[in-house]
Amino acid sequence: MNCQEFWNTMPEFADPRLGIGQAAHEHLEQCAACAARLRSQSALKAGLRAVAGQMSQAGAPARVESRLRAAFREHNGIPAYAPARAPNWNLLRRPMLTWATAAVIVLAMFLVRQPAQIAADGEPDGVTAGVTAVANSGFIALPDAAEIGPNEDANMVRVEVPRSAMIALGLEVNPDQAWQPVQADVMLGADGMARAVRFLE
């Protein structure tokens, strides 16, 4: 087997451990140039895999999905969320910063209170029972929060809270990511109190 014949049977970047014939083995033993070239190719292949492996966990940040979901809903005429009744959107014309601030404070008050209710067996007593999905909108009713009345004006604000807030509601959180913020939609009743929350992950 000469060099040309060897490379004809050895596709570029092929793993020489797989399917290399006896004749190819013999050629490699006799031809230092082909052996060196094959080693270089194998090393480059392993190196490129290592580069890919270093980046394997990289991806677009979560806010991109949030923006795209909003664009999808707008494109398809889907309301931003599905409350029990249509909210009074006029209220949302008020400065959003005020609502967001209020929602974070109210949500924090609810969530901070929860650890005191954790039962001795580790079950979040009162939380599990109180956590119920609101309709099919993905909202979770906050414990001890009043339900939104049929004629009540509901509003929603989007906030960013520590991921650990999900733990207080009985949701599973990867400990490695607990420090990372997560976006949430907070549904407010007419009294400005938080009634339900929906995490966007």
């Binding site: 570029e12 070239r37 190196g47």
Partner: peptide, 18 residues
């Protein structure tokens, strides 16, 4: 053409090589 070199570039999978 593909380079022919005696150096097997073995350290390409190490940190500096990557």
């Amino acid at each position: 053409e593909l380079a022919v070199n005696d150096d097997p570039l073995a350290e390409l999978t190490e940190r500096e090589g990557i």
